[in-house]
Design a protein around this nucleic acid. Structure first.
Length: 371
RNA sequence: GCGGAAUUGGUGAAGUGGUUAACACGGUGGAUUGUGGUUCCAUUAUGCGUGGGUUCGAUUCCCACAUUCCGCC
């Protein structure tokens, strides 16, 4: 079956909303933060741990699984869920972000995008049809329409052409889509240009998708610009479909996004920061490698209920990181993910009680955002 | 006791008679937003064993001493 979104409550003072999303692999509440598991694994965590931190849905990636091990192998394994032994909902990104991070502008044509494989340098050509075909075989619960995510900043003319192309790609992908257990999201682009965001949103909605994403954010623009991008796009999206802000973000970004009506987020930050020794805490981001934690025998975040914070000290985590032991990266990955998931749990309760702004204010009063 | 070689930062080391002593590791900070998984950036020796001498100028040349290593008695 396709997913089913139920809008259950609009917060009184903001555009924040509470709902549920039903999938073949269970129902989760929104707004939600989705851990990223690019290569069919949330780096360093096993599926039991993903469940343990309260994840409702995770991400995986078309481009990476297409290259390795290949969608046919995942298909033979019985689909992505069986392949990675994860029985919760999975969303696959389309590979569009890799257009942004791997390809040069001149490699992008109407037909598709030419890549050089980051694994062996082999020339590859990814098209909207291929992206959908791969995702159909991966058998994730939610697939993403193949888009171009332009860098920032880019000229109005470039963005206009890019938005047009992304719309044509969306149409082409939709035409070959062939998996009735899977749902498909469209992606709104348009950069910081209000009229392009409006146009992109309206035209994407006309094509008709099971949910809508806001793409092209967190690519180097400043925060006020990112907020405008969200606002410009979201007012043209239908109330009765989930809205997904791609690639965001930091703890404060989650509050800002929810306030503007976003239902779903994903970001590599919690796991990447963890691997580099950083942790989110109630009071801001900290670097566990800093010398000042050498003899700090308190938890990373005393308010956190995760396995890391319940059982280990900063001094121990620091030792593991400095000694390059993988347990340090694992424990911090668990903590950082739990931290963001817990924020969303608190946010959902606050929305239902119409006190989202109070929760936001309380969080901001403690959290020192270094950016 | 005699002969030889060596002595540069926390470590391994390069180097030159002339403004700021290479590089690597380590240390200390910082970065990271639909993940090209151990990355990137900054910073880290006012000093080249000690004391003299030669020279306009010595870490670099000379002498003595100290320490370490190797060989011989």
């Amino acid at each position: 079956m396709k997913i089913k979104y139920n809008l259950l409550h609009n917060e009184k003072n903001t555009k924040a909303r509470y709902g549920t999303l039903e999938t073949n692999y269970g129902t989760f509440e929104t707004p939600i933060f989705m851990p990223v598991g690019t290569q069919a694994t949330v780096k360093t965590l096993d599926p039991d741990e993903i469940k343990e931190i309260g994840a409702g849905i995770i991400l995986s990636n078309t481009y990476h699984l297409w290259l390795r091990p290949g969608e046919d192998i995942v298909d033979k394994a019985g689909g992505l869920h069986k392949f990675m032994n994860y029985d919760g909902p999975i969303l696959t990104d389309c590979g569009g972000f890799q257009v942004f991070s791997l390809a040069k502008p001149k490699d992008i044509s109407e037909e598709g995008v030419e890549f050089k494989s980051h694994i062996n340098g082999e020339r590859l050509f990814l098209t909207p049809e291929k992206s959908i075909e791969v995702q159909n075989k991966l058998d994730s619960d939610i697939a993403m329409s193949f888009d171009e995510c332009p860098p920032y900043p880019v000229t109005y003319d470039y963005m206009k052409n890019s938005v047009e192309r992304t719309l044509r790609w969306a149409k082409r992908g939709k035409a070959v889509f062939n998996n009735d257990r899977q749902s498909l999201f469209g992606i709104v682009q348009g950069g910081e240009f209000e009229d392009l965001r409006k146009w992109s949103a309206e035209e994407t909605v006309k094509l008709g998708f099971d949910g809508y994403s806001i793409g092209g954010t967190s690519v180097g623009e400043d925060k006020p610009t990112m907020m405008k991008m969200i606002e410009y796009a979201i007012k043209y999206l239908p109330e009765d479909k989930p809205r997904y802000l791609m690639g965001v973000g930091e703890p404060t970004d989650l509050f800002e996004g929810v306030e503007r009506g976003v239902d779903m987020f994903d970001c590599v930050l919690p796991t990447r920061l963890a691997r580099h020794g950083h942790a989110f805490t109630k009071y801001g981001k900290i670097n566990l490698r800093n010398a000042k934690y050498k003899e700090d025998f308190t938890p990373v975040d005393e308010n956190c209920d995760c396995k890391c914070c319940r059982n280990y000290t900063k001094a121990y985590i620091r030792h593991l990181l400095v000694a390059d032991e993988t347990l340090g990266q694992r424990l911090l990955s668990i903590h950082n993910l739990r931290f963001l998931i817990k924020i969303m749990e608190d946010i959902r309760v606050a929305i239902k009680e119409d006190r989202f702004l109070e929760l936001k204010e309380e969080f901001y009063s403690n959290y020192k955002n270094k950016n």
